[in-house]
Amino acid sequence: MIVNYYTSEMVADLLQSLQESKIDTICIVDNSVDTAELSKLKQLECNDTSIVVVPSVSNSGFGAAVNAAIEHLDPSMDDLVWIINPDTIAESDCLNKIEQTLTRYPNSVVSPLITFGDRGHVWFAGGSVDIRKGRVEHQPYDSAPDLQTLEPYNVGFMCGAAPAFRYQTWKLLQGFRDDLFMYWEDVDLSIRANQSGIALMIDPAARMWHKVGASSGNEGQSSLYYYYAARNRILVCNTANRTSIYSASFFLENAKFLLRPLRREHHEKISKAASVVRGSLAGYRMVRLTSESTTVS
């Protein structure tokens, strides 16, 4: 299933790359709430009977859209469900490889190895989550893929760009949090999977290519990214470990994130840094209000 937000052209390219894959239903949730954008998706639906377009009444965010789409599909417990970012391209045998891995490891979440750029370097081949610091890392990042390692392996963090699983696993995890809107839904899911003993795996024999940042625009990361990433790291880490968000290491990591737009961005540095501040304040405010509400009840 695919969540679309003004990415219909990229969705068309993705669907082209999936033509050789055996897929019963491709559900596209349109969060654009735009007649012209919906019309483009409906044209794709007309050209392929396996495609089902589900228009949203409002932009519900990534996690809520995925949850709604999967429930709309009403899969059986053993069905394979694959969430795919629109700005990706799958190699022809990617899904087949993933399905083989899920047959071997049915109670797991599996991602292909994802590359980016002209050199085909690694964008995602696994990662880690440090709740104490509120830090997520892709490991290894921007390196040539290890062509000698083709066996699936376990990781601590599962990126939300292309995870696949049996529906029964999704039910055990209870889906994505639907209150984050965008960013860190995959971190939260990874933490819960690790706590539940559900394996997170990379199949390096399955490959996808990611057009990094394409669905967010070409002006670097957006102010919305900085706001929601700053806010949601606080919400997610607070849920996982209530004391971590007040630690010195967590505040230090927040300071590093505040400096990121000033160091990396070429446009709107100050406004993006301000978004980090606003997002952080919103996160701590929401934690405080939740705590007060719990205490009262």
Rank of each mutant, 00 (worst) to 15 (best):
N4Q: 06
D13F: 15
K40Y: 08
L41E: 09
K42D: 11
S50V: 06
V52A: 09
P55A: 08
G61H: 07
G61R: 07
V66K: 03
A69Q: 02
D74L: 10
D79R: 02
L80M: 10
I83W: 13
I83M: 12
P86I: 04
D87E: 03
I89W: 14
A90G: 09
E91C: 10
E91L: 12
D93K: 05
C94K: 03
N96G: 09
E99C: 06
T103R: 13
N107L: 03
V110G: 01
V110T: 07
V110R: 02
F116Y: 14
D118L: 14
G120T: 07
H121C: 14
A125C: 04
G127K: 00
R132E: 15
V136A: 02
H138N: 08
Y141Q: 09
Y141W: 11
D142Q: 07
A144R: 12
Q148D: 11
L150K: 13
L150M: 13
Y153M: 08
V155S: 04
G156S: 10
M158D: 00
G160P: 02
A161P: 02
A162R: 09
P163T: 04
F165G: 02
R166F: 04
W170G: 03
W170F: 15
K171E: 09
F181C: 02
Y183E: 01
W184A: 02
E185G: 04
V187P: 03
L189E: 02
R192E: 04
A193T: 01
Q195M: 07
G197P: 00
I198N: 06
A199I: 02
D203T: 06
W209V: 14
H210L: 15
G213A: 07
A214P: 01
S215Q: 11
S216Q: 13
G217F: 09
E219I: 13
G220C: 09
S222Q: 01
Y227K: 10
I234N: 07
C237T: 00
C237A: 00
A240C: 05
A240G: 01
N241M: 09
R242T: 05
S244K: 06
Y246R: 12
S249D: 14
L252M: 11
K256R: 15
F257Y: 08
F257E: 05
R263V: 07
E265V: 11
I270F: 15
I270A: 15
A274D: 14
V277P: 07
S280W: 00
L281A: 09
L281T: 11
G283F: 00
Y284G: 00
Y284T: 03
R285H: 14
V287H: 04
L289K: 15
E292H: 11
S293M: 08
V296A: 13
V296T: 11
